[in-house]
Every structure is written in C-alpha cells, then in structure tokens.
Design a protein around this nucleic acid. Structure first.
Length: 278
DNA sequence: TAAGCGTGGAT
DNA sequence: TATCCAAGCTT
C-alpha cells in the first residue's frame, strides 16, 4: 500500500501497475529495499516520473528499519514522519492498509466535493481548511464504513466525476449535484499547465534517463558531445545514442540540471562522471 | 504560499 | 500538434 500510494502520486494507475509488481517482487519488505543503494530504487523507478519519489521511498524503507522495527507504522502521525509521505499518503495508508478511520482527501475527492456541494467545476488550486472540515464531517463514524466511504468517493471521482469529461448520466448522486443543477458552469479559473519543452525539468529528465541506462559513471562532456561523434553505444557506459540525443540544450542549462540533480541526491559524482547514488 | 519537480496517454 | 492532467510532496 505504501509503495503503491507513493507511486500513484501524480501518476496514472495504468502506468504504475507493472512497476509496482516488479518492485514488490524484488523488495517484498522494507528491509530488502533498505539494504539496497538508493540508486537501485531510482533505476527501478523507470519512467514513472518525479524520480525523487524513488529516493524518498528508499528513505522511508531505511527509516522504517531504523525507527519502526522493519514494520510500516499504522499511525497517521508516524506515517507522516516518513520521507515522501504527506497528509494524503499518510491518511490513505492508515485507512486502506490498516482500516483506520482517517479523513482521506485527494484530488478526486476534492473534485467530487466541489461539484456536489460548492457547485464549482473544479476545486480551488490549493487544499483549504474548509475542504478538510467538509470531508471530516462527511466521514462515517465507524472505521469500516469510513474506509468504504473514502474508497468510494475516490473511485467516483476517478471513474465517473472525472476532470475532463464527467459521466454525469452514470453518476449515482447526479440528482443532488450542485454543479449539475447550476447547469455545469465552467471552472472559475484556468489551471496553468506546466511548461515542458525547453525547461530545466525536461533536461533533468533527459539526464536521468541516461543515468538509469548507464552502467558506468557518465563524464560531463558526454552529455554535450554531438551525437554524431558517438558510437551507437556511447563508449563504455552502455547508453544508446537516442538517450543522449535528448540532451541537446544550452550548456548552462545542462549545468543547472546537473547541479540540481546533485543537490537533490538523484545523482552523484564518481571518478569524474555522473552516476545514480550508490 | 507558490514554485518546482517527470512522464506519456488522451483529447 | 498543443494542451490537459494523473491516488502530491517539499521547500
């Protein structure tokens, strides 16, 4: 549950599933993961995105070994203390893995509540105290019922009350939906999408793709070298041309990306090259 | 509080 | 092709 919840942060379930299965096959318990270098977690993360989640999940395994006797804690506050575990993930694990009564609020639940009770097409950009109060009031008082409630509202949001094209005719609570009653008004604001092309983020992603493939430290100049100058497999590091080709950017941008990855602990310098953390 | 952080499928 | 956006967290 903990592994899946962290993988599911901002990532669709269909992409998480195969990685999650491989992850649990390889590391069936926290101790197994904690024994590995953090870089192995990052490598096994594959292309799920936001690779520092892998680093934090590894950190969580280490903390569970060190502070919790190797067992994932069932208490919300203790879960919240683990790296990479915020209010949503702590509540979700406590509720779905341990049957606790917790107020689970994710983006799906926020959207369902916004439409049903506020009549808004989308929830506010950031989670508010009022939303938490509402969710807490709606939660059934018994533990078992609360778990079912949390899962149900989340699924309603994920499958029916979706962000883009909600399936209102199939909605079990369409007759009491404030947004539907108001004639499905458009969102009060337009969420600004994240830029990608030409951003540092894109370069970071490209560097990480190279480091995941490399079986030896990658010299800095290798990132900059013209692809035509390289063999199909960049000499000695096992990185295909295609991976390096993505890194065609301004030198200062590459420098920023590499510095950021070092700062975040996603990469380290070793023998004059960059590699995943050992 | 707001910005930064990956990725790829759907529209 | 460009935009949207998916079970958030950290600083």
């Amino acid at each position: 549950m903990l592994v899946s919840e962290i993988m599911l942060q901002q990532t669709p379930v269909v992409r998480v599933l195969p990685v999650w299965e491989e992850w649990l096959r390889r590391w069936p318990e926290p101790a197994a993961l904690a024994r590995e270098p953090a870089g192995e977690a990052v490598r096994a993360w594959g292309r799920l995105g936001y690779p520092r989640r892998a680093l934090r999940l590894h950190g969580a395994a280490v903390a569970i070994e060190r502070d919790h006797g190797g067992t994932v804690p069932s208490d919300y506050a203790e879960l919240l203390g683990l790296p990479g575990v915020g209010s949503y993930t702590a509540a979700a694990v406590a509720a779905f893995a341990f049957g606790r009564r917790e107020t689970v609020v994710d983006t799906n639940i926020r959207r369902v509540h916004a439409r049903l009770f506020s009549g808004a097409a989308l929830p506010a950009p950031a989670l508010t105290a009022a939303e938490m109060r509402l969710a807490a009031e709606l939660l059934p008082s018994d533990a078992a019922g609360s778990v079912r409630w949390n899962a149900s509202v989340m699924e309603l949001g994920a499958l029916v009350c979706t962000a883009r094209a909600p399936k209102c005719p199939a909605c079990p609570v369409r007759d009491r939906c404030a947004w539907l009653a108001a004639g499905e008004p458009p969102p009060a604001y337009t969420p600004k999408g994240q830029a990608w092309h030409g951003t540092d983020r894109q370069v970071r992603g490209g560097v990480m793709a190279v480091l995941r493939l490399a079986d030896a430290p990658v010299p800095a100049e290798m990132f900059q070298q013209a692809p035509a100058d390289l063999g199909f497999e960049a000499a000695g590091i096992g990185v295909p041309l295609a991976a390096l080709h993505r890194l065609n950017c301004a030198p200062e941008q590459l420098e920023r990306a590499l510095a950021g990855l070092l700062e975040d602990g996603l990469a380290e310098l070793h023998q004059g090259g960059y590699r995943l953390p050992a």
